[in-house]
Amino acid sequence: MLAVKTDKLTKNYGDFKALDGLELQVIKGEIYGLLGPNGAGKTTAIKVLVGLLKKTSGTAQVLDAEIPNKQIASNIGFMPQETAMYIGLTVHQNMEFFGKLFGMSKEQIAIKEAELLKFVDLEDWKDELVQNLSGGMKHRVSLACTLIHEPDVLFLDEPTVGVDPKLRANFWKYFNKLKENGTTVIITTHYMDEARNCDRVGFMRQGKLIAEGIPYEIMKDTGTDNLEDAFLHYATIGETSDGRMPDGGGVE
């Protein structure tokens, strides 16, 4: 049972191939980590999968529906890299707004909001304008808004940037809890220590998936004892002697 399946997925910007025949398969109910250097195409892949970017060719399915497809939008949760909150609204007003977009009733929103604010430790900031919060707090609100409608598939683009280690650990606990409830989580991250928490990770480079597996196997295959070194191994394959990528360029 696949939550996400892409076949020869490409996305071009002019001559530049941001996605170059991406073959990605994410199994329902797993936490899948999408890793790779800046410009590898991770964010592009996520944006295509949530319907924000138009693919150039190939196929891409989320929950067995060919995307873009508004029918499955309510089953999907997307947390972008940037904070992307309405800063002129309070934390509560933001959560209520997103809840309503997913057709939730006031009561449903209130229950879920209380649970999520407790989880992101922002109960005391409920009525504060988002513009008055710190960067990390904004990130937590952003995550809470993504989770409000209990999506089946979660796309999280660098969700733990600017979040302190203790809270990051909490985040992962919560992701695991979501997984136990059957939620599929696709996550991009630069923190290799937390990539280890993923069931499987995939390394992207120049728009392609160049390696995939459970973290333990990846380390074994690359002869390294941590994902950091494995990452460096994959990130530098085929690099020219001056350290530049052979093709140059890149997009987020």
């Binding site: 924000l52 997307f78 904070t83 992307a84 997913f102």
Partner: peptide, 11 residues
């Protein structure tokens, strides 16, 4: 700010 893309990824 990215809110536009964010809401367009909802229904």
């Amino acid at each position: 700010s990215g809110t536009l893309s964010r809401v367009l990824a909802t229904p």
